[in-house]
Amino acid sequence: MKSRTGRRDGGKQMVPEAEFTSYYGRPVLKETVWEADIPSYLFLGGLAGASSALAAGAQLSGHPELARTAKVGAAGAISLSLAALVHDLGRPARFVNMLRVFKITSPMSVGTWLVSAYAPLAMGAAASTVGRKLPRAGLAASAGAAALGPAVAAYTSALLADTAVPAWHDARRELPYLFVGSAATAAGGLGLLAVRPEAAGPAVRLATLGAAAELSAEQLLDRRLGPEAEPYRTGRAGVLLRTGQLLAIAGTGAALLGRRSRAVSALAGATLLAGSAVTRFAVFEAGRASVRDPKYVVGPQRDRLDARGG
């Protein structure tokens, strides 16, 4: 059956009217079986990975207080993210199934190995600072966690992009930068929330860089995809994405202006953390929406075929 697509969204952009055909309006692709665990996992993994990088930088540049917070934050976040993952899988033994093989064609396989190597390092680094024990081992663990952390924060973009889900696969170019930006924002936010403003300089700067990267990636995505970015603009995903943008802007502004106030800084940190989390849910929801409506699957493929003269 033929359906008319194209709708006005908030007067922002008129999606060109197109006719597409579907089988009783049913989705062509299967809806993802992933639930809220997965966007939470994306957020927490990003927070952990970027915090480990921040911790190492802070330690080397003489910000011990921030370094300690970031290490503890990284260990806490990666533990929670593993809990989310195991909850998603149902039981811990299922995680172990993924250690049977290493497959570069499966970002989930690569990520599993990455996280399995990273998590003990992050926890070791935190344990050594908190317990003030084994400083050498702690230093080595911190260095290892800092080396793997950025990869832990970035691989999740490949996890989503390497699917048939239109909104995720189409965003493959910008998603990595969006995700590491979001990770940096979160790690900076945690530093601001937990450390005295005088000692949180690097956290403010990392959050600012992160927010800038995140917002630019979203702009680029919107512009490059044009009408195909509709799943990111409309519905729940659209609301979440705009909320995430507002929180990132508000949080960065408060962090920069409120440097002298502990309360304002802490509030800025919490805002940035919330913004990062909301953004992950936005991307997740955009993917779901793009599978639910067959026009996002059929439309671009039909256009491609017609352009080839098929």
């Binding site: 990975g49 970027a50 990088a53 921040l54 190492a56 930088g57 802070a58 080397l60 540049s61 910000h63 800092a146 952390g149 950025p150 990869a151 924060a153 970035a154 691989y155 973009s157 990595p176 930068y177 995700f179 590491v180 990770a183 940096a184 790690a187 900076g188 690097p202 956290a203 700067r205 990392l206 860089l209 992160g210 990267a213």
Partner: peptide
């Protein structure tokens, strides 16, 4: 590239 940028950003933010 994104992971490397994140590492660089962390260094830049600290120095």
């Amino acid at each position: 590239i994104a992971a490397a940028s994140l590492a660089l950003a962390a260094v830049a933010a600290c120095v």
